[in-house]
């Protein structure tokens, strides 16, 4: 069986989900037997070099760059997985969604108690910077997402089980404790 190709990225996330991927510990050696990594912070490949089977997305979209990267992934991956709360729901960054973006910027760059040094009242508007979105969007509101792995971060075992199930085409075992609500 040809090795499956995997790519990963972190958008508006904290890299916690990536840490959780690494948390599969020594099984990472087994994983390397099953897959090869393409574009990913894990191997620092910046651009896709071939068609990818499975793309794993951490974090939602808070700026135009996130959207661009996410679309880039969609175009180059057969299957996309939203990994973790931020990718699925927006997560912590989405706490700002109830507040108008103008107020967020006002507080962050002009009024906040920690911005006293910004005496010239500079706002981030350089053309090099990504443009902020009005809300933080979960990935599936921007592109089609095929699978969702919840958790903050999702447990390493869940990630492992899901990848193995996807790669080997077997059904995933989801016991009650994993899907219960309270």
């Amino acid at each position: 069986m040809a090795k499956k190709v995997i790519a990963t990225t972190s958008l508006a996330g904290c890299f916690g989900c990536h840490m959780s991927i690494l948390d599969i510990d020594e099984r990472i050696l087994d994983l390397i037997e099953l897959v090869e990594f393409n574009k990913s912070p894990i191997d620092d490949i910046k651009t896709f070099t071939k068609r990818v089977d499975i793309g794993i997305i951490e974090g939602g979209c808070c700026n135009s760059e996130n959207v661009e990267v996410l679309k880039y992934f969609r175009d180059n991956c057969d299957i996309l997985i939203s990994l973790g709360e931020c990718a699925i729901m927006g997560g912590l960054p989405a706490l700002r969604n109830g507040i108008p973006i103008e107020e967020c910027l006002q507080e962050a760059y002009l009024d906040g108690p920690t911005v006293k040094l910004n005496t010239k009242k500079i706002l981030p508007n350089d053309a090099e910077l990504p443009q902020l979105l009005d809300n933080v969007y979960p990935c599936h509101e921007v592109v089609k997402i095929d699978y969702f792995l919840p958790g903050c971060p999702p447990r390493a075992d869940l990630i492992w089980d899901a990848l193995v199930a996807l790669i080997t085409g077997s059904e995933m075992d989801l016991p009650y404790e994993v899907v219960k609500f309270d």
Partner: peptide, 12 residues
């Protein structure tokens, strides 16, 4: 549409 508000605020 979704970047308009922030861009307007920062003058971009």
């Amino acid at each position: 549409k979704s970047v308009e508000a922030a861009n307007k605020f920062v003058g971009r």
